[in-house]
Design a protein around this nucleic acid. Structure first.
Lengths: 142, 142
DNA sequence: GTTGTTGTAGCTGATAAAGTTACAACAAAG
DNA sequence: CTTTGTTGTAACTTTATCAGCTACAACAAC
């Protein structure tokens, strides 16, 4: 089971905004054609990024822009913005193990901390990469 | 989107095998009642673990056992055994970005390496935890 | 042969992502 | 104030995956 493509779409969107912001109005239709997904998918993701204070979207006249400098937007910020892991961790735990069994009774106590550590390692790595890093890489290719 | 519960079930199964192997025959029905899922789910996971060389399952007479010492079974081994991420990485990339757009043309080159690093960080952490570690923790509680 | 178990097929239901259509809300330009 | 282009969002559909369930052939041991 994979993590949804919303994270990679979010990165793509922010790169497009940064690259094209001075040349044209960056609308959800334009973004949809670069990412090659439906524009409603883009608008839904833009809303999630907006709620997280990462982008500004102007209704009516249209267009999206970043709400803060790229150095202050990490992959982890994007991940948290678009992936709804509220409260739940990365790993889905089988609920309701049999408490009459000593293993079932203690499996959570034994495993929860380990899984949190795994998730923390992933998040630390995500937090070490900013959109500015990614944008710099992109500039050398374009 | 969360990673399926098969990983946590696999850990639970191995703990049960280790705890009960000397007292009783560890059947899929017994495991199913401790984990509290359908026995077919257990059997499917046992098959995946068997293909990975982690457990032995005896048809007919019944029962499951570990195929190698717990110190040589890491969380990463289990993850790879039960989570079908063959070739595909942890993150689902939006396919087919628009190659007429400079961003769409380069998004893969720019992002793939970063995502691999994130996944590698997660897998390093998973690889540092063995079933023996988890079993030791469990013994102190039971 | 009887019994208990595994291995697996086939179906169902639940959940989530993403596509699609449609339209009200809104801003700016004419 | 009307037109135009766009966002925000609802509603439905499609697709994919997980997990529950039933059923039964294959198999081992007694």
């Amino acid at each position: 089971m994979q993590i949804s493509s919303r994270l990679t779409v979010a990165v793509h969107v922010l790169l497009c905004i940064e690259v094209f912001k001075d040349q044209r109005k960056v609308t959800s239709d334009f973004l949809a054609s670069s990412v090659n997904v439906n524009s409603v998918v883009i608008r839904r993701i833009l809303q999630q990024l907006k709620k997280a204070g990462i982008v500004r979207v102007t209704r009516g006249s249209g267009g999206a822009d970043t709400a803060r400098p790229l150095e202050e937007i990490t992959l982890l910020n994007l991940y948290h913005a678009v992936e709804c892991v509220d409260g739940e961790g990365l790993f889905h735990f089988h609920e309701d193990p049999n408490s009459l069994c000593p293993v079932g009774r203690n499996i959570h106590a034994v495993l929860d901390g380990r899984l949190e550590e795994v998730q923390a390692a992933m998040e630390r790595e995500m937090n070490s990469v900013t959109m500015q890093d990614i944008f710099n890489d992109a500039k050398t290719l374009m």
